[in-house]
Design a protein around this nucleic acid. Structure first.
Length: 673
DNA sequence: ACGGATACGACG
DNA sequence: TCGTCGTAT
């Protein structure tokens, strides 16, 4: 929800850049034959031709719209080219679009503070760049102005044809008597035109942009401009040009007002347009919508927004989900587990590459599901979300996700969970599942061995995820079946309760929701005592989850969480954040980027003691085993090399030196997870 | 019981 | 803090 922001003196230059029908462009770059043809990207081709998620401008002009089905699109535009979203693990796979988006971000981030707003949108704060241009090379001194800049739309300026128009744009940009704020915007026009050309050149993607002096305006007007049904446009909002343009605008078109709040404005206050909104006093709005939303409303009606551009180039969470509409709804635990396994795999893959490319780790795993209960009054009841500390490793995530699901299911079913051998229709169906990872923090990147690890092993060995004997024990038969191929889904009955039950679900949950036949009971026989050595995790591992869920309720008994650890680290003077945001983030496909940081082999020889105490900002020895268990495998190895420096054989260096890491990996051999 | 998958921020 | 809700694309 919108919230009131402290006002900032607004002489800023903010751009909102929006890729034109992005997914289509990505596909067209892959298949250049499609360029210029009416094209749409579609997912799930089986039902009514799949759902359109991106539509090219050619197709739009045939009347094709997003949220049409493939078949409708064909009807509206018979020659339309439909390209399917890639599928992996039985679900849509958006990775190609994500990394294409990163390509764009890494270009745009070069010229100012940059915020990744979505997979295909960014905000730029170009104030500094514009100011220095105004100081050093103001437009009026230039003998020629970029053609692309001259194509800009200037709101409030009538658009005559051809050269006349460009002349007036030039005049506006170069006007000597302009307000300083508009002069800055003029510089913004030139900078953005340049950036867009660069994006086009380096990625082949075209984009549109809005340029204004705050986020709200640039966003809104870049949308407005792209509503003109033309790609590759840029629009500037002069300082004074707001009121007239805004006031006639239907309230529902404003960002954040497209939903319930906008409707409430209409029905409760009779506000239909921005000018209606202008009639209301700030306090009146606050009375109705609270202090934050109230003042926010008052402000945006006037085009005021103090929101800063966050210097954030990377997503704050990762998620993987799938819906199972109507008849495809999931009816058995084993089927749910199968899909959770698929989703968890994808999530883990993305976490791994985030770790590898950006040196970040996530610390919370959340499960969302949606469900309905047939044959029941309140079949609308929401399926609760559940979260727990995130442990790195595919099978860990899979187990945890499944456990979270079961915990949520118990809660969802409540008293009906106990199935009294009779009315069998009284049961759940799962219509959507998703797992997500959040609370992502930077890890210390100065430590050399992490860097070296990633240099030598550009990919995280998947072998470390399989082959652990205990894992098979922990896996239910139905789970292992469904892993290979989705079974008839009615294997439910064949699932012996006790096999799943390795997991020690928390007593808390067990007791509050009673016994349910479809939810496996705990099995005390499989619990082992705390492991004292690193290499063995199983046994205690599965136990951790239950305890963690429980723990979060009983106030984390003073144990430092992994988040705290890295928070502390990140808080140290060495301010990672800023340096990192500049340009060093390896956003994309360029894998080699890591090497830019310290990786001299000499570091290997530094005194381990010193590092152990200081480098991480806390004492390694104080870390609790279970905290350790949560860490990504690669980081664990890092720790291990601190804790047991003597175990590292000297021979490690003998081999071609400089690449001590591969040998380290070798000596702390197949520590299975 | 469909626009799908995904992300973010506010609120209680 | 967690979980829910709203919003957007």
């Amino acid at each position: 929800m919108p919230v009131a922001r402290p006002e900032t003196s607004d002489a800023r230059v903010i751009a909102h850049v929006d890729m034109d029908c992005f997914y289509v462009q990505v596909e067209q770059r892959k298949q250049p034959e499609l360029r210029g043809l009416p094209t749409a990207v579609v997912q799930y081709n089986e039902w009514q031709g799949g759902a359109l998620i991106a539509v090219s401008y050619e197709a739009r002009s045939c009347g094709v719209k997003r949220s049409m089905r493939g078949e409708e699109a064909k009807a509206a535009c018979p020659e339309i080219q439909l390209v399917q979203v890639p599928v992996a693990r039985g679900k849509a796979d958006l990775n190609t679009y994500r990394s294409a988006g990163s390509e764009v971000v890494s270009i745009l981030a070069q010229s100012g503070k940059c915020e990744r707003a979505s997979i295909d949108e960014v905000y730029l704060d170009l104030t500094d760049a514009a100011e220095s241009m105004l100081a050093d090379a103001p437009p009026e001194g230039l003998e020629s102005i970029d053609e692309e800049a001259l194509k800009s739309h200037i709101l409030g300026m009538s658009r005559e044809d051809g050269d006349d128009f460009k002349e007036s744009v030039r005049d506006w940009i170069c006007r000597k008597d302009a307000d300083r704020r508009d002069k800055l915007l003029g510089c913004g026009i030139i900078i953005v035109a340049e950036l867009r050309k660069q994006v086009l050149k380096e990625t082949e993607f075209s984009c549109s942009a809005g340029i204004a002096h705050n986020k709200a305006r640039s966003d809104f007007f870049s949308k407005l401009a792209s509503g003109m049904n033309k790609p590759a446009q840029q629009t500037v909002v002069p300082y004074a040009a707001v009121e007239e343009l805004l006031s006639s605008l239907p309230i529902k078109k404003m960002k954040q007002l497209g939903g319930k709040l906008g409707t409430s404005l209409q029905t409760d206050l009779g506000i239909d347009t921005v000018s209606d909104l202008l009639q209301f006093s700030e306090t009146k709005l606050q009375e109705h919508y609270g202090i934050n939303t109230g003042t926010w409303l008052w402000n945006i009606a006037r085009g005021i927004s103090g929101e800063e551009v966050q210097g954030r180039l990377l997503p704050k969470s990762h998620g993987s989900g799938k819906t199972f509409p109507g008849p495809r709804a999931l009816r058995s635990l084993s089927n749910v587990q199968h899909w959770l396994n698929q989703l968890s795999e994808e999530l883990y893959e993305r976490l791994s590459s985030d770790l590898e490319q950006n040196k970040r780790i996530a610390s919370t795993l959340t499960l969302h599901a949606s469900a309905f209960r047939s044959k029941d009054s309140d079949s609308q009841k929401k399926f609760p979300s559940k979260s727990c500390p995130l442990r790195y490793g595919v099978t860990k995530i899979q187990e945890d996700a499944f456990n979270l699901f079961q915990a949520a299911l118990r809660e969802y079913m409540g008293p009906f969970g106990t199935k009294p051998q009779g009315n069998k229709k009284e049961t759940w169906r799962i219509t959507g599942l998703s797992v997500s990872a959040s609370k992502i923090v930077d890890i210390p990147s100065g430590t050399s061995s992490i860097m070296r690890y990633f240099q030598s092993q550009s990919t995280i060995p998947s072998s470390s995820e399989s082959g652990c004997p205990q894992e098979h024990v922990a896996m239910t038969p139905s789970a292992s079946e469904s892993c290979s191929e989705q079974k008839s889904a009615e294997t439910e009955a064949a699932m012996p309760n006790k096999d799943i039950s390795i997991t020690d679900t928390s007593p808390d949950l067990d007791n509050s929701y009673g016994n349910m036949d479809m939810v496996p009971e705990k099995d005390a026989s499989c619990q082992s005592s705390e492991a004292k050595e690193f290499p063995t995790q199983s046994g205690t591992q599965t136990k951790t989850i239950g305890r963690k869920i429980n723990n979060s309720k009983e106030k984390n008994r003073g144990m430092p969480s992994i988040v705290d650890i890295f928070k502390n680290y990140n808080a140290t003077p060495q301010s990672q954040q800023e340096t990192r945001e500049d340009s060093t983030v390896s956003l994309t496909s360029n894998r080699g980027n890591l090497s830019s940081s310290t990786n001299h082999s000499s570091e290997v020889n530094q005194e381990v003691e010193d590092r152990r105490e200081t480098e991480w900002g806390y004492k390694v020895g104080e870390i609790d085993q279970s905290v350790f268990d949560e860490l990504p495998y690669e980081i664990q190895r890092e720790f291990r090399s601190f804790l047991r420096p003597n175990k590292r054989p000297n021979a490690g260096k003998s081999k071609g030196d400089g690449s001590a890491s591969s040998s380290i990996a070798h000596y702390f051999s197949p520590l299975k997870r």
